Simulated scan of single mutants.
Amino acid sequence: MDILNRISAVMALLLEWITVALMVALTGVVIVAVLARLLGESFSWYDEVAAIMLAWITYYGSALAALKRRHIGFDTVLLALPPRWRMAALAFGEAVVLTFFVLMAQAGFQVLAILEGSYLVSLTWVPVQLTQSVIPVGAILFIAGQLLSLPDYWSKTARGISLEHAEIEEEVDTEMHKNAGHVVGEVR
């Protein structure tokens, strides 16, 4: 398990940096484009590049959310099931998600083959394959995130622990301990 935790930590760090870098770059592009427009100039490439960057943020951020199990889920419904059915439902749900992303990766590679030789309209030196490579890459990263986080999720679900509730309870405990320290300090 230790190796999985290390791989997960490295992947999380990389995805966080990539996502933040893309968000900062997109913010920079938007600011520069707005300033240019205020000065009476307009970039022909702005809309196309901003849309591509937003898609990249979505795919990389989605893979990060999969790794941290932060996508919308139904833990309460899942945990309401008897343990045997709970684990069967979890396995079914994971199979559906993984199958979808395997198909998405396959379709993404097919799209890349079709797009060979195509270039962006506004930046004619940028291959469309590069911009659309995020589809299969994002799908593969999502699959990796799901698989790396599955053992911990499986274990917690089997024990009846909700990821959502566990995080909330941990935050409440942290705040209670912080506040208890202040109260004790004041009593002295």
Rank of each mutant, 00 (worst) to 15 (best):
A105K: 04
V111D: 06
A95C: 06
Q106G: 11
F101W: 14
L120M: 15
L120P: 06
V97A: 14
L79I: 03
L112F: 03
L78V: 13
V121I: 14
L79A: 08
A66W: 07
F74V: 09
V102R: 00
V77D: 11
S118E: 13
V102F: 14
G93Q: 01
G73I: 00
L90K: 01
A66T: 01
A65V: 09
Q110G: 03
A91I: 02
Q110D: 12
F74D: 06
A66L: 01
D75L: 12
F101S: 04
F100C: 06
V77M: 11
M87R: 10
R86L: 08
L120S: 09
V96H: 01
Y119T: 13
L81D: 09
A113F: 01
A107W: 10
R84E: 14
L90P: 01
L115T: 15
F74R: 12
T99M: 04
G73R: 10
L112A: 03
K68D: 09
L78F: 10
G117D: 08
G73H: 08
A89G: 01
S118Y: 15
H71P: 04
V96I: 13
E116M: 01
T76Q: 15
G93H: 07
V102T: 08
A105Y: 06
L90Y: 07
P82K: 11
D75S: 12
G117H: 05
P83Y: 08
R69P: 00
S118A: 14
F100P: 00
R84Q: 11
L115A: 15
H71G: 11
I72Q: 13
P82L: 09
A113W: 05
P82E: 15
P82Y: 08
D75F: 09
R70I: 00
A65M: 15
T76L: 14
A95N: 00
R86W: 13
L98R: 02
G93D: 06
V97Y: 11
R84S: 10
A107I: 02
V96G: 02
F74E: 02
R69H: 07
L79M: 04
L78W: 06
G117K: 03
V77Y: 13
V97P: 06
F92E: 00
A89Q: 03
L90G: 02
A89S: 06
A95F: 12
F92W: 07
G108L: 01
L81T: 07
V102E: 01
R70W: 02
F101D: 04
S118I: 00
G117F: 12
V77S: 04
F101K: 03
P83A: 10
G93M: 02
V102D: 01
A91F: 06
Q106D: 02
G93T: 04
Q110N: 12
F92Q: 00
T99S: 15
Y119Q: 04
T76N: 14
L79G: 09
I72K: 15
E116T: 01
R84A: 10
L67K: 03
A107R: 10
F109K: 00
G108Q: 10
A65T: 14
A89V: 03
M104S: 06
L78I: 06
E116S: 05
V77A: 14
A66Y: 06
A113S: 11
F100S: 04
F92A: 05
V102H: 08
A88W: 10
A88Y: 07
L115Q: 15
R69M: 06
